[in-house]
Design a protein around this nucleic acid. Structure first.
Length: 320
DNA sequence: TCTTCTCGCTCCGTCTGACG
DNA sequence: CGTCAGACGGAGCGAGAAGA
């Protein structure tokens, strides 16, 4: 399943385009189209259809082995159980999420029953999808956007946009903000348009994903270990919060590796309370490289300091 | 038998250090 | 210099242990 590295700034959109052109051996003037779509903050889900019937739904897991959540996926309204005129084999990938309104209503119901309320829509969706009892999942208002595909017995289209349109025709819900862009300036313009609409969309997004539109070119560009060369995520700026560093402990990891951890005065960032954050190693804390030279933007973190905290990818606590 | 707890797992994105 | 695996923390769930 797709994961994206290298979140970047607006000016780097041009660099991304240049890198793609260099890899493909295409001149700066040659036409090269990209798609741009909002990056939904939810859970990846892979749906497998055989002869038009939904036979399996799996989470991403570690990339090789995920959880089988077929019964739960069947309770999601946006996911068709049966599709007509589909290839014999069709794997559809998308994002399961919960809208702001549904999340608020769910928490209200939970509170009325004296149950636990959820911290944020993403975790509520993740928990709901993992229920053993599908009837509990049915009562949770989950939604699904299809944005990619896996194994296929026949190609969906010749372009990314064409394939998404085909998925929509087959009965999947696709994101209406998916657009075709003809170059970096167009991509940045669409990013700004999506960012402007972010607050009123009614669901969480954490950036915009650009993909090379021509699927034959995607094929040529291929993958690195975990990430495709033909796609990249353009993230919105993360929410920051100030807090005090109360201490630094050395922690023993699963593999026996020792790593320093920041003990922080608990602070709310992006809807959750953060009290720990990894500091990776001694050089990271000092802001020096292994030769003792100062790293540009180095941290020089000390106990008692006021530090800025953010959640990388809206998940992992980090000291900025 | 029922409730409360603890532990281990998943899921996410990014950074590091090792390796080719 | 590019690539890659592993580590990291918080929320939530599930299984099993412990206690009432």
């Amino acid at each position: 399943m797709l994961s994206l590295a290298n979140a970047f700034d607006a000016e780097e959109v041009t660099e991304f385009d240049a890198r793609i052109r260099k890899y493909l051996g295409v001149g700066a003037d040659a036409p090269l189209a990209y798609t741009a779509e909002p990056k939904i903050d939810g859970l990846s889900l892979s749906l497998r259809y055989e002869n038009g019937l939904l036979v399996q739904a799996a989470t991403r897991g570690d990339g090789a082995v995920g959880e089988n959540v077929t019964a739960n996926a069947r309770t999601i309204q946006d996911i068709p159980h049966q599709i007509d005129e589909a290839p014999d084999l069709l794997e559809v990938r998308g994002e399961v999420y919960m809208s702001h309104a549904d999340f608020a209503a769910l928490n209200e119901r939970q509170a009325e029953r004296g149950g636990k309320t959820f911290a944020n829509p993403r975790n509520a969706a993740a928990g709901s999808l993992r229920q053993l009892d599908a009837e509990i999942t049915r009562a949770r208002p989950l939604r699904f956007f299809a944005y990619a595909w896996g194994a296929l017995s026949a190609p969906l289209a010749e372009t990314q946009k064409g394939a998404i349109d085909r998925l929509a025709k087959l009965g999947f819900v696709t994101n209406p903000l998916t657009a075709l862009c003809d170059g970096p300036s167009d991509m940045v313009a669409h990013y700004e348009e999506i960012e402007a609409q972010r607050a009123t969309l009614g669901y969480d997004i954490d950036g915009v994903v650009y993909k090379v539109d021509d699927l034959a070119l995607q094929e040529r560009l291929g993958f690195r270990s975990t990430t495709p060369r033909w796609a990249i995520a353009h993230k919105f700026a993360a929410e920051l919060a100030w807090t005090r560093l109360e201490g630094i402990d050395i922690q023993v990891g699963r593999t026996g590796a020792l790593s320093p951890v920041a003990r922080l005065q608990p602070v709310t960032v992006g809807g959750v309370v953060v009290s720990n954050a990894t500091l990776h190693n001694e050089d990271y804390i000092k802001g020096l490289d292994s030769k003792g030279a100062e790293i540009r933007g180095g941290k020089d973190i000390r106990v008692g300091d006021w530090v800025q905290i953010y959640r990388a990818g809206d998940v992992i606590p980090k000291v900025a």
